[in-house]
Nucleic acid binder design. Structure first.
Lengths: 336, 336
DNA sequence: TTGTAAGCGTTATCAG
DNA sequence: CTGATAACGCTTACAA
């Protein structure tokens, strides 16, 4: 049935007929045990909420499927212990591992990973160990976006940060700060409020900024979910976006281009990130690189997706930047 | 190590110490083979795009995790063959199966499912076989929403349908039609355009309606993703929502409450649907119901989540209905 | 080309 | 309480 050896055609037909009759399907565990190959990739995530993880999974699944692999998913792992537990539970059940744990110290993370299984760490830059890493250029993206806002004339930028415990959030915040320094602008702490990457926290963050005596002219949310919340809050406060207060986000989740107004964001190829991670694993699996082969450490570049939600504070929009929309006349393809 | 038998404390400690030293982790496949229990639930989905599936997975994972199970996910299965393949590949790798295949004829679906594994079919109402089913009340939800729109005074309702091949889409369309019949309104075919549950198709659908000589006063999209696209299109057409054209959706994905304007939608407990399916499976697994026990066939009720995007065509909003918002003063909890 | 036996890493059973 | 032994269902190597 596996076509692993030459067989008489008649015999094969007979076997196949009986197999069908018995509704036979091979037992995956037995198969995996014997051939030392499971046909599955393990995915360990901190969470499963929102379009970011949805897209990541989609990319992973897409690539895994090309190699007839499925995904063993385990989420809600916020500390090293939890990740270690999840990863151990996957031992012998997966051929490779994709781990994303932005709240866990990378050093401690490496300790809990089992050897012998090809592993890719997502967004765990700075890991020394012999493990593949693929990371989004968080700092670079935030830097570029902030520069863009400054170029538009914004001087008071309200930053809605993510949780301090989240490495991605910290890097984005650093990128933002770097751009301010670059422009010799002060790091005004009243212009940073901390959220937690949820829409609700973005909503609260925006409300905080609106209540300020001298409110910012633009809000930079450290992810799109919070930007969505911010847009909603500004609408509730009857403020026009971008005229009275602009909003930009980070991630460029699929819905961003369809928001009202369309959300300017730092485009991250989320699905590509997942697809790339899976491809890396599958390549290792297929080619069995000799021991000592150095791991890959890749940095996924970001791009600015300029849409309608950012404006210049004086109301003077710069068409070439703010209206750089659809490649094919359609919002869904409007990232640049 | 499994605490499956009384052991001398000293021996246990010694074993555990060596295990830790060797970084021992049991092989999942071997374990599964021997104890005839894998600790995983299989999830077969048509797709992985968008917040609907994200939420569904979240609910499934949440419940599975409570019982120390993980999720083996396989998506992109649109026909019976594909589903059959995916399901067979999971044989011996999962303890239970959750299958959602709205594009597959339920009868043909049952044929490809392997016996011996507890299975829950999602949104495959009308299956005769001895298999659990949990279905969203698609027709009921669409009926209720349409009635609501009629009560607001709308008489020309543009329906952005889903793919004709999708059972959920068809049921929602039927519910819409039933409400029209009920009100003795004609089924005007120019007031139905067909999309495919993506934002882009909703955008196109709305554009089609806007171009009509006698455009509808409200658009009812068969899912929220298309409603998001419609809102975007109306904005592009400089039409005020809901004053010039209202929009409502179906599913009530998490982002709906944060849209601009907040989207009125048929609330579906998506995560609950997933959690419920997982719970059903895990219960069967724990209690091993005797053969002959009838399967459960459950219908998940929907509720209207009335927000700002639906209005009365004359501009006379009915506060009690249109402003039934946040329970706790916050959009994220504003479903009713 | 076909049949047979060993082994994959664990758990379960059953004498000591 | 401990150690040995037979499954678990498949693949693979080797003998017929």
């Amino acid at each position: 049935m596996n076509a692993s050896a030459p067989v008489n055609e008649a015999t094969r037909a007979r076997v196949l007929a009986v197999a069908r009759e018995l509704r036979f399907a091979p037992n995956g565990s037995a198969r995996a045990l014997s051939r030392r190959r499971t046909g599955a990739l393990g995915v360990v995530l901190p969470d499963l909420y929102g379009e970011f993880f949805s897209e990541l999974l989609r990319g992973l699944d897409q690539e895994a499927q090309r190699a007839d692999h499925s995904l063993l998913v385990s989420s809600s792992h916020h500390d090293a212990r939890g990740v270690g537990f999840a990863v151990r539970a996957m031992r012998g059940r997966v051929d490779g591992l994709v781990v994303m744990a932005p709240e866990v110290d990378p050093a401690g993370l490496v300790d809990v990973l089992p050897g012998g299984v090809p592993t890719v760490l997502l967004n765990a830059a700075g890991v020394q160990a012999e493990i593949h890493t693929i990371s989004v250029d968080n700092a670079g993206g935030a830097l570029a976006m902030t520069r863009h806002l400054l170029a538009l004339g914004h001087r008071r930028i309200g930053f809605i940060a993510g949780a301090a415990s989240n490495a991605d959030a910290r890097e984005r915040e650093h990128g933002f700060g770097a751009a301010l320094s670059e422009a010799d602008l002060p790091h005004d702490q009243t212009l940073v409020v901390r959220g937690d990457f949820t829409e609700a926290s973005g909503w609260r963050g925006a409300k905080t900024f609106v209540a300020l005596a001298d409110p910012p002219t633009v809000l930079f949310a450290a992810n799109d979910a919070m930007a969505v919340g911010a847009l909603s809050a500004l609408r509730d406060s009857q403020l026009d976006v971008p005229r009275e207060m602009a909003v930009v986000g980070f991630d460029d989740i699929p819905v961003a281009a369809f928001l009202n107004p369309p959300l300017t964001s730092v485009h991250v190829g989320i699905a590509e990130l997942g697809a790339h991670a899976a491809a890396l694993l599958l390549r290792d699996l297929a080619e069995r690189p000799p021991p000592g082969t150095p791991p890959r450490h890749e940095l996924l570049p970001t791009q600015l997706a300029i849409r309608g939600s950012c404006g210049s504070p004086g109301g003077t929009l710069i068409p070439s930047l703010t209206h750089r929309t659809a490649r094919h006349g359609h919002p869904s393809t409007s990232t640049t």
